[in-house]
Structure formats: structure tokens, C-alpha cells
Design a protein around this nucleic acid. Structure first.
Lengths: 150, 150
DNA sequence: GTTGATGCAAAAACTTTGCATCGTG
DNA sequence: CACGATGCAAAGTTTTTGCATCAAC
């Protein structure tokens, strides 16, 4: 764990990963990744929220750069892009320590329950390994109708 | 199976479901549902595609109504809304005969492999039943990096 | 005849892009 | 000091909404 400035902390070698792809380690990319590291896995933000959170921290980054950076960090495996029922995407830190959680969603009222399933995780691992893929993350959404709406 | 006009076929009691909610059975709603029934489960269309397909069939329905109808049919459990990597949502007929299929997706290049897993389906059934939900549909997405991109 | 649904066009929400400038490597 | 990244503003996409009119019940 390497301290780069008063508040930027690198938990993963972002710089070296970027370097391999001919990309550069910029203040903006660090700020975005650091924000997600500070809020921790399991919390998700929209692009707009990243923008305003950083503004609040006096670390303004333009919205265009935020969109570009979120896409990059997803492709590098740092963040997970999630589509919830709200409009737009949300992003969340990927972490080995934090188990993938799955969602049971009511199609009528949107009520959402989280659950975990080792069977599901195992099926994801198996599917990836059979096809020779390196597993990054899995998500399971179950659409249903909740007791209240039935 | 009830024939309503030369090309509209009702496979499910759309009218009665709508009626229960104080909603009306309109030509437009029938046209949209019928389109999905004709192409069958396993094929998905965007709102824009529904619009142009219907136009080709000389059954023009406005795009605004298509958006309103798609949302309604999803909430009534006739269609499944899917978010693939392209911009925008896609919609697909729900069917008990057609097993839910799952996706292994490369986060670098977008290559997608389909697979099926009874364990996953069973986990979805169990999660719904434990919480007292009526299962509609489940989808499992595994994000990974494919052999070519590794 | 009531009231919900439609069509249209305008607006909102979300995301991408062109280009001049900046800053990393 | 070259070339990738940023910021800005403009444009592109996708989806929603207000309102007058239409049609299902």
C-alpha cells in the first residue's frame, strides 16, 4: 500500500497495468479509483455521482473524463459496471474479499433482496474455466413478484 | 389460442390481465406482444427495432407508445428486459418452454458465450421461494477475460 | 360519456466526441 | 518533446413527458 499524496492511496498497481497498455497514470484516474476505494466494495455510484463526490472533495474532474475513466477501469478489471433499475449505469469496486452478491428483484415494485449462493459462484467459475476465460466477476439477477404485489 | 384478426394471435390472456389493473386492451398493445410471439423466445429487439418492424408490417405504432408498452409488458411478466453491452435495452418474450440462458462475457472485447446451468436455475428458484416471491425469470452474467485478450 | 391510451413534438437524461491544450513518460 | 489525456462545449442516443385527441369499456 503506497501513499501518493495526502489522500491518494494505491491499493493495486494501477500505474503498471496502465503502462502495459501504453496508457498513462494521471491524477484524474487516481482520483476516480481512489474514490471507489474509499467508499469500499458493495457501494455503487453513477458517473454523475462520481462527478459530484469529487467536486465536494475539491478534486474536480470533468464529466467527460469520468465517463472515459469509468470505462477504462471496468475494462482493466478494477470496477464492476452494474445496471440496476434506475436509468444509467452504476459502478462499484471489485474486490476478492467481498463476495459477489446476487439480487432478487420484484418486477412490479422494484423491491430488491440480496442473497448469496456458493452454487452460483461455482457455476460461474466452472463456465469461465471450461472456456478458458479468466474470471473477473459474476452477477445473478432473479426477476420475480414479491408477496405484497402478488 | 385465440385468433383475433388476420395476424393477431393471443397466446396469453393479455386482456384479462390488463383488465384486473384497470388498464385497456388496445390494438397497439396487441401488436407489440404479437410481434414478440411471432419471433419467439430467445430473440430480442430494441424499442427502435420494434418500431421499425411494426412499420414494415403496416402496423405503425408510435415510438412513445412502444416505450410505454414495453415497460407495461415487462411489469406484467410477458417480456424480459435485458441489458446487453450495446446502448439501450432489449426485450424478449418470456416462455416457460425456453430455458433461461446465461452469459460469459469478455470485458475486453465483448465476446460472449452462452451456457446453461441447472444449478444456477435451482439457486434462483430457491432464493425466490425462501423469500416468498413468485419466480419470473433469472439471468446470470459472468464477466471474464477471454483467451485472446489475456 | 368517462377515463385511460395514443401520437406528436419537445424535453430530459445519459453518454460520446472533436478539438485545442495540457502533462506524463 | 511526442503522444496520450483532459476539459469544454456541442452533438448523439435513448427514453420520458405534456397535452390535445382518440377509443375502449
Amino acid at each position: 500500500m503506497q501513499v501518493v499524496s495526502k489522500y491518494l492511496v494505491i491499493r493495486n498497481p494501477l500505474g503498471s497495468g496502465l503502462h502495459q497498455e501504453g496508457k498513462r497514470l494521471t491524477k484524474q484516474r487516481l482520483k476516480v479509483l481512489n474514490l471507489f476505494e474509499n467508499i469500499g466494495p458493495g457501494n455503487h455510484l453513477s458517473a454523475e455521482e462520481v462527478h459530484s463526490e469529487l467536486k465536494d472533495l475539491n478534486s474536480k474532474v470533468s464529466l467527460a473524463t469520468i465517463y472515459r475513466t469509468l470505462r477504462l477501469l471496468v475494462q482493466m478489471g478494477y470496477l464492476h459496471e452494474r445496471e440496476l433499475s434506475e436509468g444509467g449505469h452504476r459502478y462499484e469496486l471489485l474486490s476478492n474479499d467481498f463476495p459477489d452478491h446476487h439480487h432478487l428483484i420484484c418486477i412490479k415494485c422494484g423491491r430488491t433482496e440480496e442473497f448469496e449462493s456458493d452454487q452460483v459462484l461455482e457455476a460461474g467459475r466452472k463456465a469461465a474455466s471450461i472456456k478458458g476465460f479468466k474470471l473477473i466477476e459474476s452477477s445473478f439477477k432473479v426477476k420475480a413478484i414479491c408477496p405484497n404485489c402478488l
